[in-house]
Amino acid sequence: MSPQARFAASLLTPGSRCPPGLMTWNGSDPGRRFDVYRNNVMVSLIDALADSCPVAEALVGTRFFRAMAGIFVCANLPVSPVMAHYGKGFDAFIRTFEPAAGVPYLADVARLELLRVQAFHAADAVPLKSADLAHVLANADALPGARIALHPSVAVMPSPFAIASLWLAHQSDDVSAALGGVDAMRAEAVLISRVGLDVTMFSIDAATSVFVTSLAADMALASAAGRAQATDPAFDIPAALALLLRGEAMIAINFPESMLND
């Protein structure tokens, strides 16, 4: 093992001895000084998860959250120096983390928060405004086969839990009172989109969730609407499109002809 491999291994093995070859000016135990590095690694990585998931942290309390995050960190060290993307898989880890089983919605709340971070840093693109849609109405015949390109910040998250209400309650000045009215076991779906510079969340119904997810999968407009309608016959296409417009979630409407011409 190379010296840095030994250093790294000791760093990541709590309770182990510090690596050989360290010295101190006064002959004091280098292990105590080495622990500064150990703590820096763990604390900074746990902090990164806590910064991303403040509501998940509030739900279970700081002590539980940091202990849980510490176990995740040990098994999932970053593979990139770009820390903005660290935390992928944290929600999946929470889902299988036994002591969190009593808070079944915790994983989905954490996932929602991680999606918000990704939306925050997603690529820029100019959203379609109402005025840009004149050509859409002029090409009405081609609409069923058209595909809607969504903004890079857009994400849809359906959940069997009331993730949106839980998240919103934590933005209140009186979190306890706000949570009292939340039935955590009610299914909710959320559309995330960066409106201007602000990561914005919209509470959406199950059919709209299917509609936007289908569009994101590059499905044609009529097929996406059809799938949404199959989910709920009352699916309101105009309302869903208005939401995408207001949420600055669409960046292009591509018609089959133009795609062929490409």
Binding site: Q4, A5, F7, A8, L11, Y37, N40, V41, S44, L45, A48, L77, P78, V79, S80, P81, M83
Partner: peptide, 10 residues
């Protein structure tokens, strides 16, 4: 170290 980023200046 390798593919692991340790997020500290060692």
């Amino acid at each position: 170290h390798g593919t692991t980023f340790l997020n500290d200046l060692l």
